[in-house]
Design a protein around this nucleic acid. Sequence first.
DNA 1: TTGCCAAACATGTATATACAGGTTAAAATT
DNA 2: AATTTTAACCTGTATATACATGTTTGGCAA
Lengths: 236, 236
Amino acid sequence: MQKKYLAIYQDLLKRIKEHHWREQEMLPSENELSTMYDASRETIRKTLDILVREGYIQKVRGKGSVIINRHMHHFPVSGIQSFKELSQKLNLDAKTYVHQLVLKKPRDEIQDQLNLSKDERVWSVARIREIDDEKVILDKDYFVKAYVPELTVDVCENSIYEYLEGSLGLEISFAEKEITVEEPTDEDYRLLDMEGFTNIVIIKSRVYLKDASLFQYTVSRHRPDKFKFVDFARRS
Amino acid sequence: MQKKYLAIYQDLLKRIKEHHWREQEMLPSENELSTMYDASRETIRKTLDILVREGYIQKVRGKGSVIINRHMHHFPVSGIQSFKELSQKLNLDAKTYVHQLVLKKPRDEIQDQLNLSKDERVWSVARIREIDDEKVILDKDYFVKAYVPELTVDVCENSIYEYLEGSLGLEISFAEKEITVEEPTDEDYRLLDMEGFTNIVIIKSRVYLKDASLFQYTVSRHRPDKFKFVDFARRS
DNA sequence: TTGCCAAACATGTATATACAGGTTAAAATT
DNA sequence: AATTTTAACCTGTATATACATGTTTGGCAA
């Protein structure tokens, strides 16, 4: 099955991004779209629900669907995206250095965060991200070995997510994130270009697969001037 | 109409929060819930969709709905919530001081952010938030006068959102937010307790009503040690 | 015992229908 | 002319049905 509602969603999104309809303007009504795409109104409503959820349109009862002008969609620094996806989308001059790659029994904090049993081992990856020739991000990833049996420096230098989703066929589904600002550690000063900076932004993530199993814990440490997080929220 | 799917959603959420089902456990199947609540399967699916969206459950095809263990739900520092709602939920010792309240033609940056025409005026509110007897947050709100004709110091000291939604009947719907870390300004040093801190977390928000009209722009400046942002994201 | 297959059951997708209730503008009434 | 009513059209809610597809399990056959 080719998922009609997804095809329609993608077509509508494309049209919105190409400004097929102007900002602040109305989309065709559900019934019109239903005719246009030869789909039932319920199917159309399903695609519109996605657009609502992602902040592209706002539905107004009795009127129709307004297109939201999102300054934000140019800046997708939220959600679940790999560094490679991000730097490509933003067209950044970015490099990755693998600082460490080991398979080991993790320390207590990691064991706790990943809900691991006593003897389970994790792949521990430390990578330094360089943007415009400055080392500004330190990523520490921990992957449960049960889900990621093998990991190479080559994969870590390129894109772990590409490997996980492409080669291993893992289906990454959702993540919990926590953003705080703290004082840099000695390691931060040593590994990153921190001259003149006295704070560091820390993003801790727990990442889950489609079947709700927790397989990754990540601590991403950003130099504050290179950090920007964009969010879309609905009330209640 | 009393919105059956919302009632069921609230009941399910209550049960989840009361650990009626254990973490990692399955919810009853859609058909079982359908019988339990005397609703059609589609209605049940609608309520489950909300729980999925908000990160309470994860649906697994062929299996059922797993309850996600969210450390996060105790820390609702994301989404659209007023300071009052937040401090009540977290049971904080919090006070608010209104530093400024004026109706004026805003400077260019604000005019731009709010998409205002030349002569429109906005209510400009500056408030200092004190938590545990430390001044740690500076909130600057800008409300378009067309939507908020009147504003008093009293309202600003208590809760503007309570006033907007309760008395004015405004229906707040969604917001775009942007989080960055910058150097404090003189004003930050003057108004907040910033001893020893060299950075400040800035959250800029554009807030919209149910009909997609932009009515509020807010700049919220947080001392970094008192800042924590929690996010739930789904992939693709 | 092992391996395979089918049944039972789970969620996913698509459609049709009905009515409730908000919005607008034209038509009817005052 | 001003006001009210109505009709047309919009989204919101609720239900029923059908079939597709993934998961698990128990039974049958090799």
